[in-house]
């Protein structure tokens, strides 16, 4: 197996006296779809927030390795925007789009960290800037096509349906050209049909060479989609393995699955 693109060692996050995350290890290899599951309040979102620099971890190491250049970066204490530049992008559990900007503009914002024009380019619109702007629009449009929103480019993001907003968030994250995509409950609030489209979309994204780490409560989705699963409870990692292994793990059943899954 090739080297891990994300390597988390002993990650701990304290909020005052509470250990929201307690010495969690996790690794993701290129091309994998990995799920992070656990009961409510287990610390999954906090884990994402530590990875993406929104929280600073209390202890532990997070290392990101670019699969192409092989460059390794320690993410601890880095600013969120720098981390995104390294090639890891995310979506949010409580959707965080730019509500009054158009669908296209939302994705265009994702292109920000891969483009350069500043004041000079904005004012003088030199050829390089114009080309860059065209590239931003074209790429964003292509991404919208992929997530199935190209018919609503001019719509304000807040007017989209719930499922469409979740897909737009994925599109926006894709625009930053990540090799690792973190999805926080992408299927939350979706109806079965929307979930099905989402599963197809995630598979497609994975096939195009993005690795995926996703948090999800929909067990059917998790079991069918993931190569490996990590299970957290009360901030600790209690199990990891293939869907089959996790499904039959007594600790997991005790903590969480129990009656949830008719496995």
């Amino acid at each position: 197996m090739s080297k891990a693109i994300l390597n988390v060692k002993g990650l701990t996050k304290n909020f005052g006296g509470i250990k929201a995350i307690d010495k969690v290890d996790l690794d993701i290899h290129p091309g994998e779809i990995v799920a992070l599951i656990g009961p409510n309040g287990a610390g999954k979102t906090t884990f994402f927030n530590c990875l993406t620099g929104i929280y600073t971890p209390s202890e532990g190491d997070i290392t990101l390795r670019n699969p192409e250049s092989g460059k390794e970066t320690r993410l601890n204490g880095m600013k969120p925007n720098k981390i995104t530049e390294q090639g890891m992008a995310r979506t949010f559990q409580n959707i965080r789009l730019f509500p009054t900007m158009s669908v296209l503009e939302n994705v265009m914002i994702g292109r920000h960290c891969r483009t350069k024009a500043l004041i000079f380019g904005a004012v003088f619109r030199n050829p390089a800037t114009r080309r860059e702007e065209e590239e931003i629009i074209a790429t964003s449009y292509d991404i919208l096509k992929k997530v199935g929103l190209h018919k609503q480019v001019d719509e304000e993001a807040r007017n989209l349906s719930y499922g469409a907003q979740r897909r737009l968030e994925i599109g926006r994250a894709l625009a930053t050209e990540p090799f690792l995509l973190l999805l926080d409950e992408p299927a939350a609030g979706m109806n079965p049909k929307e979930t099905e489209t989402l599963v197809t979309l995630i598979r497609e994204i994975c096939k195009e060479g993005h690795s995926i780490l996703l948090i999800e409560h929909d067990m059917k989705l998790v079991m069918s989609l993931s190569d490996r699963i990590f299970v957290m409870d009360y901030g600790k990692k209690i199990a990891q393995g293939t869907p089959e292994e996790v499904r039959s793990n007594p600790a997991v059943i005790k903590a969480y699955l129990g009656e949830d899954v008719d496995a």
Binding site: N81, E85, M101, E105, H112, C113, A117, G121, T129
Partner: peptide, 23 residues
């Protein structure tokens, strides 16, 4: 421009902006 869009986005949601790579 690219800059103007970033300003608008910043006005709407700072955390999402940072997560999208805006300094």
């Amino acid at each position: 421009s690219r800059l103007g869009r970033a300003w608008l986005a910043l006005r709407e949601d700072e955390i999402a902006c940072q997560a999208m790579g805006i300094d």
